[in-house]
């Protein structure tokens, strides 16, 4: 499955934006999506998707790391000694992740407190390193940047798609805006609407197992909608 993501090096390195370049961005959103097709980066997708706000911050962080890790690796690809390339890639990723962490701590301390461990864990996110090995080491910086951008967004979209049902059904809110619940703080107060009295926010949705179920359902929907993804065998 993973080798579908490997793209042969494009010989000419002009800065045109043609079909191939467009595919670099749009493929990871659909046909080679890191989470639903390649099943990479599941760990953080399970952990941070309890709220849309956290997922959004995480998505931005991963897009940033993917984009710049790909670009920097690609710029250095002819100078990186093959024997230590993994370590070099890891240093690049770790540096960028630390930059993200320090910046987030300065601009949004609340999110930093909620996400701290998982921001650090972007280092181990298979998507980032996977793209460096599979793409950036063999392609020019421009196309590598597009590829990083596409994969980061592909990951972020799924995070948000998982977070929306989890936050809505689990806490009754979206982006911390309270929508449905059994107290007067919520927009729809279930205790006041007679036919909604049975509804209660489902705590299971906030816990990690529900993320597994939601991702499973997303993969199912994705494959039903995109027949290219169904294994021929």
């Amino acid at each position: 499955m993973a080798d579908t993501a490997t793209v042969k090096e494009v010989k000419k390195s002009s800065l045109t934006f043609g079909k191939k370049e467009k595919a670099l961005i749009t493929d990871p959103l659909n046909d080679t999506n890191p989470i639903t097709v390649q099943v990479l980066g599941i760990c953080s997708a399970l952990a941070v998707t309890t709220g849309v706000k956290n997922s959004l911050v995480m998505a931005v962080a991963v897009v940033f790391v993917c984009l710049f890790a790909n670009t920097i690796t690609s710029l250095l690809r002819k100078r990186i000694p093959k024997q230590v390339r993994m370590i070099v890639q890891l240093v690049i990723i770790a540096t960028l992740v630390t930059v993200v962490e320090l910046t987030l701590k300065a601009i949004n301390f609340e999110s930093y407190r909620q996400l701290s461990v998982f921001i650090g864990l972007i280092i181990t996110n298979c998507i980032v390193m996977g793209r460096l090995e599979a793409f950036a080491m063999g392609n020019d910086p421009y196309r590598s940047a597009l590829d990083g951008l596409g994969n980061g967004i592909g990951y972020g979209l799924i995070l948000i798609a998982v977070a929306i049902p989890r936050e809505l059904l689990g806490k009754g809110s979206l982006m911390d805006f309270k929508i449905i619940g059994n107290t007067s703080e919520f927009l729809v107060n279930t205790t006041e609407v007679s036919w909604l009295g049975w509804y209660a926010n489902n705590n299971l949705m906030v816990l990690v197992p529900s993320a597994m179920i939601v991702i499973g359902i997303l993969i199912w929907i994705h494959r039903a909608w995109n027949p290219k993804l169904v294994d021929v065998s």
Partner: peptide, 14 residues
């Protein structure tokens, strides 16, 4: 040399 320079640069930046 590569590893040394890279480490020094990264350390300085961070």
């Amino acid at each position: 040399t590569f590893v040394f320079i890279m480490t020094a640069l990264v350390a300085l930046l961070l």
